[in-house]
Design a protein around this nucleic acid. Structure first.
Lengths: 232, 232
DNA sequence: TCGGGGCGTCAAGAGGGCGTCATCCAGGGT
DNA sequence: ACCCTGGATGACGCCCTCTTGACGCCCCGA
């Protein structure tokens, strides 16, 4: 899916010079780079921008590194590469067992970090299973999962980030029922699992934009009490 | 799938003392350990025994380490952790880009290696998501457990949340008797274990929707005084 | 033969979930 | 500083589903 050169990297570090060095090197290699300078911002950034990989410094000002890892692992499997000045075996074990994917000690070689980053992205990029067609056509409208575009009667339909998040999850599970909890969890984050009202609002918006008869949906179906389902 | 304590590790190294140390430590932690002392044997061993993770020394007598990695990556995504005495950045990059998942330099801490191994196994254990098609066919109707769909004579039958809860539990225990108490406990909750009237109502509804002759059920059977049973 | 418990069936009321619309608020761009 | 988009939240009516009650049947033992 997301090729290396299109991958988004979240860099979490409170040392400006490290952030700067990483930003320069990563950008030069075609990665999209976003940054956070503490744990709270990191959790927020992951929930909002869904990066393809996280580079996480353990020495953050506001919370312990393993807490950040734990906060992420509760609801996402995004690869996490830990950066740390501490090379103790115990630190590595703790971080890895908390859910980190790799552990690099400072000072680190940029080449090595980049290689480990490629490895992490490659691994997680394999999973988008399904052998899925990147373009799904319902007859009423088409969804291009790779390009993140939706067309209806030839014209492109603009979707907001949240609308796309809902639609993508449903389309990737086409034919299958997706539980309300899962939608809320994956699109909004782990603390929104009970806000089913959001789903009603956004499904209504998607239907209005995509369905020929929004009040009689043929593709974005509700299974009362259970969840939603996308049918072609 | 394979839990940590049941995971199989292939150790590929030509130094007997390393193999011995790994075998002892891994076995002590409940891993099943198999070994290979050169690249050819390693490729053969992976094909034959399908290990959950490979620990690969780069300094093998018969072939280059990256060749081994390449030979594996052509057809399997099994996690590969490289062990190497050479800590050059270039070596790491080469191995990782060839398809390795991690790179540990000798001498290594056993704790760290074990933690990285756990991380690698954990990652790959997550992916076998929606493996098996879970479709049950009775001849009269079919149940798709993954999609939460029921079809009868080609047409989809709509079930409510509670109806589906009852049917799913029975189907997942197909052929076995499911006690009333268990059904009520699992579908309605622990405080409903005596409300057997619910079961009568819902079994009747399911039969009406699914059975060819609802009054003569062939699949959703009552065992008077005990519970219900689903038969194909 | 009679009575009771378990079961199946039907029906109706109540509550909750859903769709819809309107409003408020924050953030980003001009 | 302003506007404008998009997200969050509340109000409201409708429909479906769950729940509950009533009743008849069958099987069993008394």
């Amino acid at each position: 899916m997301s090729l290396d050169h299109a991958a988004t990297v979240l860099v979490v570090d409170d040392e400006p010079q490290i952030v700067r060095a990483l930003r320069i090197n990563l950008s030069a290699r075609g990665y999209k780079v976003i940054t956070a300078h503490d744990g709270t911002a990191a959790l927020k950034a992951v929930a909002e921008t869904k990066p393809d990989v996280v580079v996480l410094d353990l020495g953050l000002p506001d919370m312990d590194g393993t807490e950040v890892i734990g906060g992420l692992r509760g609801w996402t499997t995004v690869p996490i590469i830990v950066l740390s000045a501490r090379g103790d075996s115990a630190d590595k074990v703790e971080a890895l067992d908390a859910g980190a994917d790799d552990y690099v000690t400072k000072p680190f070689g940029m080449d090595e970090l980049l290689a480990r980053l490629r490895a992490a992205v490659r691994r997680s990029a394999v999973s988008p299973v399904d052998g899925a067609e990147a373009i799904v056509d319902t007859g009423s409208f088409t969804i291009d999962l790779a390009a993140k575009k939706v067309r209806r009667e030839g014209k492109e339909v603009h979707l907001t980030k949240t609308e796309w998040g809902v639609l993508e999850l449903l389309v990737r599970n086409r034919g299958r029922l997706v539980a309300q909890k899962q939608l809320l969890h994956d699109v909004w984050g782990p603390t929104y699992e009970t806000e089913s009202h959001y789903l009603r609002v956004y499904l209504a918006q998607l239907r209005r934009k995509l369905e020929p008869e929004p009040s009689r949906p043929r593709h974005l179906l509700t299974e009362p009490g259970m969840g939603y389902r996308f049918e072609i």
